[in-house]
């Protein structure tokens, strides 16, 4: 999947993200989540995803708790608590609980989509794509990204020098430790800003601002990129259709509605699943079948 161009990857990721934002139907969210897990497995990120799941679950629990506490629109009361000051009667309903669970699922899809983007998007290629739209901002972004690790090293060095002089960052009260770290910020500021003038002169010497940007990468769109863009567009159209016809959302309140509203909804969900699996299938074919790799 990493071999795809930034535009094709972005269109795929954007559709997954838009799906999590637009749709609230449990079946459609399950389709999105399954496609995402397959994509994560293909990008060799399933192990990392499983590791992060415990952090995701904590946030999902929080979403569930908030929704259960604040939502009083459900009709099936599971637990009726006392009347609380400023709050009214405390009640837990089945509908609010299920709604919280589905919202948690949406949150998981959003997190997983970003995790996939971190795995498959090459920052250099993404920056190059951005440079086409915002050349100055892309230059600024590249300079900032380059400066952070350099300044990190400088800060570590300055910290070690201070420790040699007897400053201890790990002992004493919390305030004392924070106070010990403050001079580091001043030192870093001074040296970094002095360095920035040299950096400015250096980019000027390399003809920054004297004309149009030259390009380092040669972008060539291959059939697989067109296939991914087309499948993503198809999935986006299906999502919009479902959203417009009210089939993208599920009735939670006051009582939960039927899961499948129409046959069309089921067909759209199946088609959407297939379209979202296209990049995964292409990647698998690319890895396993030389002829296919050559063709796409």
């Amino acid at each position: 999947m990493q071999s795809l161009q930034t535009l094709s990857l972005c269109s795929y990721l954007l559709v997954l993200f838009a799906g999590a934002v637009l749709l609230t139907h449990p079946l459609l969210l399950l389709v999105l989540l399954t496609a995402l897990i397959a994509a994560l497995a293909e990008a060799e990120g399933l192990k990392q995803w499983r590791k992060s799941l415990k952090y995701f679950l904590a946030m999902i629990m929080l979403v569930m708790i908030i929704n259960t506490l604040v939502n009083r629109m459900g009709a099936t009361v599971l637990f009726l608590g006392p009347v609380l000051p400023f709050w009214g009667r405390f009640a837990v309903t089945l509908e609010a609980l299920c709604f919280g669970l589905v919202m948690g699922c949406r949150l998981l899809i959003v997190f997983s989509a970003f995790m996939l983007s971190n795995l498959v998007l090459n920052p250099d290629k993404a920056l190059f794509a951005l440079a086409g739209l915002f050349p100055r901002s892309a230059m600024l972004l590249a300079l900032t990204a380059k400066t952070i690790p350099f300044l990190g090293q400088q800060m570590q060095r300055a910290g070690e020098i201070q420790q040699c002089r007897g400053v201890n960052y790990y002992r004493g009260s919390f305030l004392h430790r924070i106070k010990n770290k403050l001079p580091l910020i001043k030192v870093l500021f001074l040296s970094a800003l002095e360095g920035s003038f040299n950096l400015g002169e250096s980019i000027q010497a390399r003809a920054y601002g004297s004309g149009a940007r030259s390009s380092y990468f040669h972008v060539s769109f291959l059939p697989r990129d067109f296939l991914v863009i087309a499948s993503s567009l198809g999935a986006a159209v299906l999502m919009l259709r479902l959203f417009q016809h009210g089939e993208g959302s599920y009735q939670f309140f006051p009582r939960m509605g039927t899961l499948i509203i129409s046959k069309g909804q089921l067909v759209s969900a199946a088609l959407m699943f297939f379209l979202l699996l296209v990049p995964v299938l292409l990647s698998r074919g690319w890895k396993k079948w030389d002829y296919f790799k050559w063709k796409i």
Partner: peptide, 30 residues
């Protein structure tokens, strides 16, 4: 960002803004 694109800035200004942004971003870590 579009406004910044149209606003002409010298290479030194660009470098100073990038350095300040890097410092602000880095300060999240300690």
């Amino acid at each position: 960002y579009l406004w910044y694109e149209r606003h002409s800035s010298s290479p030194k200004e660009v470098a100073v803004i990038a350095t300040l942004a890097a410092l602000a971003g880095l300060s999240r870590i300690p």
